[in-house]
Amino acid sequence: MNTSPDHIFDLATSLDAEGGARISITGDLDWDTAEELTAAARLCLGAEPPPRRLHLDCARMTLCDSLGLASLLMIHRAASGSATRLHLENRPTALQRLLEMTGTADLFTDRADESGQGGATRPPLPPRQP
């Protein structure tokens, strides 16, 4: 194998004791691989009953392009549908910047502690206009 480590894409799925699922993403999330992540997440969310939480661990994600983000948005949409709380963990700086620029960072920010604001699924900034 002469493939350098950053050209390997890998998804590792695991379940925890409290009914949560975790997908660890290694490598570039892009044109070639985004579909794979969407499919893996759909598989997790399709379980009966659906997991209470889905953790996407991005610690070893090397890149996320627009199709990667589209995949994350699709997973978010699917997770909302099955009432699963989505956690995007260990975001690399570039991913965080992409999320902020596209106004999607708040979608993936865990607000478990802010249970007082039930239903506040929309990011607070910028303020909605009439």
Partner: peptide
């Protein structure tokens, strides 16, 4: 700033 177009049910922008 604002949200991307075409994927989310609502958009916000300033």
């Amino acid at each position: 700033s604002g949200t991307l177009i075409g994927a989310l049910p609502d958009v916000r922008a300033t």
